[in-house]
Nucleic acid binder design. Structure first.
Lengths: 197, 197
DNA sequence: GTCTATAGCCAGATAGAC
DNA sequence: GTCTATCTGGCTATAGAC
């Protein structure tokens, strides 16, 4: 692993746990096992290091979403595939959703950068497909954007609010992971149940 | 409005927008229209000012939850009432969910403080009621904690990830608010649809 | 490329006048 | 109680030896 990679990985861990404002360059250096000056040598400054980490996190998630949403499947199959693949992916990167949401809230101007990015999550084709399947009588009438929001909510929220959720419904890490494992298929089934004719 | 209240309100705004680490005492003082030294005179230090704000935010939400969850209603009515009252409340305080989730993630040790708090959101009676209604054949079999998580997800997520959501599904502030208005009743209906016999 | 040492700044906190 | 002025520590960033 190159020095740059060591720094990048360390930065990802620290930024994801503490956020941009809470992260300390010294902590990243310690985590990477190198000197603080190297951070500036490799990435110029804190802002640029952060942007590298954030951009990377975001661009790992977006293709996951688009690959499923732009396939040739039916809406029901897309829901099944999305919940399964997204939860699988996020279980490997549990800090990612909270990190992205937090930094987007703290720096709303950032959002613009990613909305113009080629790899942004783009649900427009799925939205028209939903309209079509409603017209075809496959799905009960529902506002397509509401359905999309439901899918994201059920899938992402447990991870974004992980610590709070574990505390309120009183589950251990193991129980939480087991619940998420179940959700890979169960939430697709529930959403489909609630909208199928 | 007393000086202390002016400070508290200013602190709430700044902390909710920037988070603990990103907030600046100077910005809070400016927002309150008073001098920075007064912050320390009234609240001793940044940490204590933050804790006052956070505790207040949390203890505004928890009773909302418990009042509905511990009533004498059926599960279906509890779901209807919760989504309606929670969304109404949060539309008045749109930064609250993201703020709580962010700070809980950044300071996991905080969670313990609130789990022991008398006013913590306590869903245990609702959980046994769900078990009972499943046994009685009113609700289709589902793990009670999963159902609870579904309810929270559908209700809270759109607010917690507000900026991201607006960007991805491409809605204006007005459209977003209108969607949330609809969700007050629609998500209860969908959840109930997906679990009723 | 990698380090040590340090510059320079900024933010939290305090002293003390009024 | 409210202010101005200032201290102090910590953090980002850089200079410069190796």
């Amino acid at each position: 692993m190159t020095t740059e990679e060591k720094i990048f990985n360390a930065a990802r861990m620290v930024f994801q746990k503490k956020g941009f404002a809470g992260a300390r360059m010294q902590e990243i250096a310690d985590e990477a096992g190198i000197n603080k000056a190297m951070l500036h040598y490799c990435f110029k400054n804190k802002q640029l290091l952060f942007e590298a980490v954030f951009m990377n996190a975001f661009s790992q998630l977006a293709p996951q979403v688009n690959e499923v949403f732009n396939s040739q499947d039916t809406v029901f199959d897309k829901i099944r595939k999305f919940t399964h693949s997204y939860i699988s992916f996020v279980m490997e990167h549990p800090y990612l959703p909270a990190f992205i949401i937090q930094e987007m809230n703290n720096n709303p101007e950032f959002v613009m950068t990613f909305l113009n990015h080629e790899n942004r999550p783009n649900p427009s084709s799925l939205l028209s497909q939903i309209e079509k399947e409603i017209a075809d009588g496959i799905i009960n009438p529902i506002q397509p954007k509401q359905l999309l929001l439901d899918i994201f909510s059920m899938t992402v929220f447990p991870f974004a609010a992980q610590i709070l959720v574990k505390g309120i419904i009183q589950v251990s890490d193991e129980e939480f992971n087991q619940m998420m494992e179940e959700r890979k298929t169960s939430i697709a089934q529930q959403i489909i149940n609630s909208i199928k004719k």
